[in-house]
Every structure is written in C-alpha cells, then in structure tokens.
Amino acid sequence: MQQSPAAHPIVEIRKLSFGYDRSRPVLRDINLEIPRGSVVGIMGQSGCGKTTLLRVIMGALRPSAGEARVLGHSTNTLDAEGLYAMRRKMGMLFQFGALFTDMSVYENVAFPLREHAALPDELLNDLVMMKLHAVGLRGAAHLAPTELSGGMARRVALARSIALDPQLILYDEPFTGLDPISFGVIVRLIRELNDSLGATSVIVTHDVQEALGVVDYVYFMAAGRVIAQGRPDEIRRSGEPFVRQFVNGSSEGPVPFHYPAPGYDADLELAAPEPQASPVMPQASH
C-alpha cells in the first residue's frame, strides 16, 4: 500500500485556523505535515485544541481559514459524498472505543465490512477473525461489548477501525484510563498495525511520557498553536520551558496553576464592595 513515501505527506495542514465563532479561535495558524508510514503524536494540555484539530483532519469540522489536505483531498471543498469516500480510507479509534453496544464483538468488527463491501459470509468471517486475531481477541468474538474490560474494548475498537485496511489511522486519547498491561498492549498494537498495514497513524494525547515511546515525530500544541515539534529525543532534550513542564509534569512553569481570573482581592470583595453585598460577608481579612 505504501506508495512513493516521500512524495506527498498524507496529511498536510497549511495556515489553518478554526473557531466555533469569530471571537474565540480554537486553532490559530497551524502548519503541520504527516508523512506516509509514520506515527505522529499531537500532544498538549486538555483544551489546547488537539481534538478539534483531529476533527478537522477527519473532516467533521471545516477550517475557518487555511487548508487541510488529507489523502490528497482538500477537506474545504469536499461534499458529503466525497467526505464519506475519503473516510472509507481512514480509521478512527475513539477515546472510549465507541463500540456499538447492541452488537456482539464479532458484529462490531464486521460492521464496516457489511456496510461497505458485499462479501460472501465465509470471506467476511475470515476477515473478521483475522482482524480480531491481530488484536489478540479472536476468542472474545461472541462476547457483548459490556462484558469487556476497558483495554479489551479499545482493542476491539481498534480491530473495527482497521477492518477496511485504512491508509490513515487516527487515535483520540488511546491511553486514557488503561492499566499498565493494557497500555503496553495498545502501544505495541499501534506500532505493529501501522507497520504491517503500511498505514500512517496520528495519535492525539496528553499522556506525553507514554506516547513519546511510540511516535516518530511530535507536535506540541498550546492555546491553539503548534509551539514545538521534533523527534521524541529532541523533545526530551528540549529547553523550551512549556515542553519541559509538560514532559516532566510539574505544576510550576509557564502554564499557570490558576485559571485566568480578576484580582483575588476583587473576588473577595475587598477592593470595591457593592452596596448590596451580603452582610455576612467578612469585611476584612488583613
């Protein structure tokens, strides 16, 4: 599947901005390239816009300015049908798996195949079993999603998202809420599936330490911008204070502990108390 690796990056984002409304831009002037065959991490704090960026890549949101080229298509101009055609070549792993709760594990993995390819039953069965085998859950085919542990559910969801042999696999917070063993399994699967399918993977996560072990390249985001990028070893050695704070997970650094607020004094009504201030309010604390 791997065609002329260096020729065209599989995802190419140029000067992209996005906002739900004009006053609050979520993404600002993003430039980003994801070459074929690589595993790329997009990391940052919760709320920095990385999930929004993922939704722009999958075509669920349209950029307000700039362009996102995914698999050779500009998502700005695609209509619903073009978008669906593009998504058929993509797989997406949702944060908590998003398995269809009214179907068995087997039917979950068979779902994209049934919807998009009219296969004879034996072939369908073989394909489903192959995908389940790849994530090590062939034996769980008959179980219901509610009978699975969190890690198993995510593996089933992974099998489902690779059912159509995608060229691009997107992971939304794949490590959240996993025990160390499940975590190790997912990390191994991301790498193995990427290389065996000849696919490209994008991992959106805030679990920096864990993700740095899997990815080939990292983009760091803060407040809707890409603030740093590089290979994992470069990132670990980075002098950038924000990246250092994030990689080390310390509470002191450029990211403030306090959410932006008016002066502490004002909130305690010390500066200019309103006439109708409650009488039980402490009048002075100094």
């Binding site: 944060q95 908590f96 998003a98 269809f100 709760t101 919807e115 998009h116 998202s161």
Partner: peptide
C-alpha cells in the same frame, strides 16, 4: 457514547 460519531467516521 460516540457510537454515532464512530459510524460517521466509518462513512456510514
């Protein structure tokens, strides 16, 4: 539980 989004991502 994002099942509808997942479906949309599978081009369904």
């Amino acid at each position: 539980t994002e099942q509808l989004s997942a479906m949309e991502m599978m081009a369904v």
